[in-house]
Amino acid sequence: MTTRTIDLSVTIEDNMPAHKLFQRPVLTTHLSHESSKALGLGIEGDPMTFQTNFIAMLDHVGTHVDAFRHVSPTGASVDEMPLDMFFGKAICLDLRHIPDLGDITVADMEAAEAKSGVAVDRHIVLLCTGFHARHYPSLDAVWKNPLLTVEATRWLYERGSMMHGVEGPSTDKPTDDRFAQHRLCRELGISHWEWLVNLDALLGKREVQFFGVPLKFKGGSGSPVRAFALVDD
């Protein structure tokens, strides 16, 4: 048996699509190998040149995790949350039949759970809808993601799942400003990753090990993550 690493993160790029309420990121070269020559570092015949980049972005752009602070003024910030919330045993549910702006229901979750062959039991649950592959990097990726219903969210919570992950910029539809799913997560004390990619590579793999660990931003409402899974073949 061999173990493979599956990258589940979107590449962070200058001006990449972001949630409808959020500014797109800015990435540009700060010092290049060419411009750093003027600093005169290194030794004669072997100059030490280098590159540094300037990055300006919100903590909810690209593949990221929501801290409790994101939806609650009294919630824990990302640096205060237990580190072990951000990795662990996971299953990926096949929900590729869910259309753009569709609803992921309890019936959908139960059918996908049965198909996976693994009962949700305190797992991180990843929801593969095929949404990213259909739309990214067009602006449809911002305006057409499906909704994880409050009933389906409570279904996860009742099975001990404290963290889940979705494709696209949000667990709530962009056409609905009530943010019912986020408000329920606030009530239940659970959270999620957004804008995961390549989840189809996890389908049929039963249980995997998932990692989506945030940067330790003081007071952070969330954080970009390098999400990945370890899969046994």
Rank of each mutant, 00 (worst) to 15 (best):
R178V: 07
E187M: 10
G102V: 03
R24N: 12
G165W: 01
G204L: 01
K218A: 14
L39Q: 06
E167D: 02
L184T: 07
V78M: 03
I98E: 04
N53L: 13
H182P: 05
E34D: 14
D7M: 11
D59E: 13
P99W: 09
H182Y: 14
V142A: 09
H60Q: 12
G62A: 04
I12P: 11
R186V: 09
E80P: 05
G189S: 03
M57D: 10
G75Y: 02
P174S: 10
R154F: 07
L126G: 00
V150C: 10
E187K: 14
E113Y: 01
W155L: 03
L156E: 03
H60I: 13
I104W: 06
R183T: 14
A112Q: 05
L139C: 08
P174W: 00
C128H: 08
P47D: 01
D84S: 13
R226G: 06
D121H: 12
F50Y: 15
H123R: 02
R4C: 12
T129V: 06
G168N: 03
V78S: 01
T2N: 15
T149G: 08
G160W: 00
I91E: 02
F217G: 10
S116T: 03
H70V: 14
C128S: 13
V118K: 00
E113S: 02
F131R: 05
S191W: 08
M163K: 09
A201I: 05
R186D: 13
G222H: 04
W155V: 00
N53Q: 15
Q181I: 07
L95A: 08
A112L: 03
D108V: 02
W195I: 09
R4I: 15
K218L: 14
F217D: 10
H97P: 06
L95N: 06
S138Y: 01
A111Q: 14
L188A: 05
Q23V: 09
K173F: 09
L148S: 06
M163R: 12
W195V: 11
R4H: 15
A114P: 05
K115G: 01
A111C: 08
I124W: 01
F87A: 09
K89N: 13
Y157H: 12
T52P: 04
R96C: 01
I124A: 05
D200L: 05
F86L: 04
A227G: 05
K115S: 15
G62I: 06
Y136R: 04
K144G: 06
E194W: 05
S9D: 03
A227R: 04
E34S: 12
M16L: 06
V61A: 11
F210Y: 14
D121T: 10
Y136E: 04
V225A: 02
H192P: 00
S9Q: 05
F87H: 14
T129A: 04
E167H: 00
R226I: 08
H30W: 09
L148M: 13
V61I: 14
A229N: 03
F68S: 13
G222N: 07
L202K: 02
S35L: 04
R122F: 08
H164I: 09
H33Y: 09
T63W: 08
L215P: 07
R226H: 10
